[in-house]
């Protein structure tokens, strides 16, 4: 089983990069003092890096270990088992990690109204996730989840927009140089990622079966941006603060 797992990830450079970021983040996080570890600005990015590592390992494991995958599949649905690991990504990437990213943007907002909007977006998204699971309109084990993909990217684009509105209107940001402010960079990457993969995510079923070259191209872009995002989070763990400069 382990051989199969290792063979599966052997030439998966995205997996390697995610694992490196995960290990480094864990190391840097453990080296931080208690106060910094408890800070939302550090803890949430750290948990997101760990989450990505978790679901990537789980997704690969579900491919190499079909019996366990089938057990999980049976827990989630009565549909016939096709050997897919899409449910891992549907739950952990498109739902949990998107909510995590929304939370991360939310804690970086300063305006009370913006925070409220993000709360509402998060609750609406969560309610839809619960509804879609129980209504079985779009089965959780399948790749046909256009509304979920649409909503997950939309909430992040709106939340990123709210952050940029805060940036140009709030007193807090007046003395800050955004180029040395890490939340500015990771929220920019989150926005880039959400905008660029928006159409590809919504049309993922068509691309997977009808135009695999385009699917792989978008997949590559998405993975590159995600690795950059994880790299920024890892750097955040390394410096232990939101600002790149020493004086901040």
């Amino acid at each position: 089983m382990i051989e199969k797992f290792l063979a599966r990830i052997e030439d998966n450079y995205y997996f390697h990069m995610v694992a490196i970021c995960g290990l480094l983040s864990l190391l840097f996080f453990l080296l931080l003092d208690q106060e910094k570890r408890r800070s939302h600005y550090i803890l949430v990015p750290f948990l997101l890096v760990m989450l990505v590592n978790f679901y990537e390992i789980l997704a690969t494991f579900m491919v190499v270990n079909k019996p366990i995958n089938e057990k999980f599949h049976r827990l989630l649905t009565d549909e016939p088992f096709l050997g897919w690991n899409a449910w891992v990504y549907n739950i952990f990437y498109y739902q949990v990690s998107k909510l995590g990213l929304l939370l991360l943007i939310g804690i970086n907002l300063k305006k009370a109204l913006s925070k409220r909007i993000v709360w509402v977006l998060g609750i609406v998204f969560l309610l839809y996730c619960i509804y879609s699971y129980f209504s079985k309109t779009y089965p959780i084990h399948g790749i046909q989840q256009p509304i979920l993909y649409f909503l997950s990217n939309t909430i992040l684009i709106i939340a990123s927009g709210l952050f940029f509105m805060d940036l140009i209107t709030e007193e807090y940001y007046i003395e800050i140089n955004p180029l040395t402010y890490l939340p500015f960079w990771y929220i920019t990457i989150i926005m880039f990622h959400s905008v660029i993969v928006f159409m590809a995510d919504v049309a993922v079923e068509y691309l997977t079966f009808e135009n695999t070259r385009v699917y792989y191209m978008f997949n590559l872009v998405s993975r590159v941006l995600y690795v950059i995002l994880l790299g920024v989070f890892t750097y955040l763990m390394f410096i232990g603060k939101n600002f790149i400069s020493r004086t901040a």
Partner: peptide, 8 residues
Amino acid sequence: VVSMVILH
């Protein structure tokens, strides 16, 4: 993004 930075 560049516009946001310039506005800021």
